[in-house]
Nucleic acid binder design. Structure first.
Length: 281
DNA sequence: ATGGCGACGTAACGTCGA
């Protein structure tokens, strides 16, 4: 019997508001016999003490959290029954956890990494990432974004050497190519698509990471984020800025990569859709 | 069409996201 896991990422834009949808999505995926074994969340917008451990544990998931009030905040959620040993202990489930980029002092909670051992699979190194937005190329926030990207690249080089089976999942706030933008002519040089950001994305690829989504045939105009304004979703005026990057060792094991637009259609949705990659043993 | 939506904090709007 072939063993596989589904790993996913979702920028929920406030877990306080979106918890019911996270639970619904996890439940529907499981019911459809496509359970999510690991879910990396971004933009929790809550401190650690507000995290809904109880509700998610009751649904069968264990949680590692790097929270922050108001902005940012990331988590890794794993399905207990998919683990190699059905632990209920966070310390033994999430091995070698890392919060933030080592050596890069930052108040903003944007990186959470841990190694997880699923039943039937070699250990997986999961990195839940919320890249800075950048606001606009002439802003201080953009300079922060570029500095952060360099720090990430330098850290991941080491992390990949130590953990060959690595997945980087989350909201990259970069549309890697013009086909990831609904109207590229309107976006030339702007935040999310600028030459500097795309060069930084390419440097991550050059470390030995692959954009799992582009390993498979996809329908044109596939996006992961749509502006709440201007009826962005209804017009499919979106961007593909959420990604699952896989190391070479995982790339060969990946059997599917997709964006699930369904939750974006629900009442009071996040502006991002969840993304999924399937990894075979 | 440069604001439009939505969440947050603090208490009727400003700030931020992308």
């Amino acid at each position: 019997m072939t063993k596989s896991v589904r790993i996913a990422a979702w920028n929920v834009n406030s877990l306080k508001v979106r918890l019911p949808q996270v639970l619904r999505w996890l439940g529907e995926q499981a019911k459809a016999d496509k359970p999510i074994d690991a879910l990396c969340l971004q933009e929790l917008k809550m401190s650690d003490d507000k995290y809904p451990h109880r509700e998610l544990e009751a649904a069968g998931y264990l949680n590692l959290v790097a929270g922050q009030k108001t902005y940012n905040g990331v988590a890794i959620i794993v399905r207990r029954s998919a683990l190699a040993s059905m632990s209920s202990d966070i310390e033994t489930t999430f091995i070698n956890p890392i919060r933030n980029i080592p050596g890069n002092a930052d108040e903003q909670q944007r990186i959470l990494a841990a190694t997880v051992c699923f039943s039937g699979l070699q250990p997986l190194r999961l990195v839940s990432a919320y890249f800075p937005n950048g606001q606009s190329p002439d802003s201080d926030k953009f300079a922060y974004k570029l500095g952060w990207l360099t720090a990430l690249e330098n850290w991941l080089k080491v992390e990949l050497a130590n953990n060959p089976r690595l997945a980087l999942l989350g909201d990259f706030n970069i549309a890697p190519s013009d086909i990831d933008v609904h109207d590229p002519s309107k976006w030339i040089g702007q935040n999310l698509v600028s030459v500097d950001e795309r060069a930084a994305f390419q440097r991550l690829i050059d470390l030995g990471l692959s954009d799992s989504f582009r390993m498979f045939e996809q329908v044109p105009k596939s996006f992961s984020w749509w502006d709440y304004r201007m009826m962005g979703f209804r017009r499919n005026a979106g961007m593909r800025i959420d990604h699952i990057l896989l190391s070479d060792a995982l790339k060969t094991k990946c059997s599917a990569s997709l964006i699930d637009k369904e939750p974006r259609k629900w009442e009071q949705p996040s502006d991002h859709a969840p993304i999924i990659a399937e990894i075979q043993a």
